[in-house]
Design a protein around this nucleic acid. Structure first.
Lengths: 189, 189
DNA sequence: GGACCATAGTCAAATTTCTGACTAATCTTA
DNA sequence: TAAGATTAGTCAGAAATTTGACTATGGTCC
């Protein structure tokens, strides 16, 4: 029951089509809420049926037509209600962490390779966040933007995403080092 | 299709009952895989049916009887196969982040209160991880343990959990500060 | 002495999420 | 000039996850 609120929050930044939302939920938004395009289209349909968003058809020449959605007053009210409700604790779900938990029983070389691959991906995401945030704040520097800028919400969540990925990269690199050092060395088993 | 691998990884640390696993998945394990007791009991039944874990009945006096599970050779093989398969990218899912994303449209006071509450929870988790890791490594210091200790897998994932929570606490505190500073101040809207 | 917490589970149903395919036009690249 | 990527969606079915019960016994708190 909370993908809807993530969608409402995303639409606060302005009109979006389902397709554009799907992109958002693959980059910025994905850092605290992941969803597939099918889910988003379905959720938008429900939100519209419930009157929380309003869609308008946009006819295009060179592209298929699209529907752009906006949050309605009822949607805003719902979002405010949600903001006051108790939050469920967050959770990560990560295949790679499961593999590391099993590190003592699986092939270290493979694990190291995957950790390094993940570190590289995390690096890429850090850069992506930096670009995104730079674009958001325009000429203002971060302190200025946080103090007086419009729409700090998405900026603050990007900061969180950036930290998460940066830390992820570090941990992956360090963990790979630990495993590499242990490989071939005498260890208590 | 991956709760099973999380369960297998958890059982590598030794025999556990469904009930004990449920506890694990509420603390240490929960930092990279969250699951309710019902799921665990169901998954253990499936794993046993597939021959990946073996259960044995333990009759108790003062407590209800229980079944302790161990990973079988087939289970180990499956875990190794899983470790070599490509990892799906991790995802966070967090109500509170959704609320912060909507920060520009919701009640700041409520959001600040929730951020501070979350910071306190994160603080508690950091301490919990410190205790857990201290217990795991015994007399050895961290560097020693990582180099030569038995079962580094769970220790490494705890390190990740600790970092995550520590960073979470910082971000929550800083974000609350930003929102508090903006409340009442003239802001571009 | 009653209320509640911990141990140790089980069951059914609703909801959410994921997998995989399918349409259809245009724009880009080799 | 053919293949593939991009835009913009839709549909059905399978799998996973959550919600909300319910059974028992023993110990602890007040």
């Amino acid at each position: 029951m909370a993908l809807r609120h993530a969608v409402l929050a995303a639409l606060l930044e302005g009109e979006h089509s389902g397709y554009q939302l799907a992109k958002s939920f693959d980059v910025g938004m994905a850092n605290f809420w992941h969803a597939l395009p099918q889910q988003l289209y379905a959720e938008l349909a429900k939100l519209e049926a419930d009157g929380l968003v309003a869609g308008r058809e946009v006819v295009q020449e060179a592209r298929p037509n699209k529907r752009l959605f906006t949050v309605t007053d009822a949607g805003l009210t719902e979002l405010r209600r949600f903001a006051c409700a108790p939050s469920k604790p967050s959770f990560i779900r990560d295949d790679l962490l499961v593999k590391v938990a099993a590190a003592d029983a699986v092939d270290p070389a493979e694990l190291i390779a995957q950790l390094e691959e993940r570190a590289a991906i995390a690096s890429g995401k850090v850069e992506l966040f930096d670009k995104l945030m730079h674009k958001m704040r325009g000429e203002l520097d971060e302190t200025e933007y946080l103090a007086r800028g419009a729409q700090v919400g998405p900026y603050l969540t990007c900061l969180r995403g950036r930290r998460f990925e940066s830390e992820n990269r570090e941990w992956c690199t360090e963990t790979a080092s630990v495993l590499r050092a242990r490989a071939g060395v005498d260890v208590q088993r």
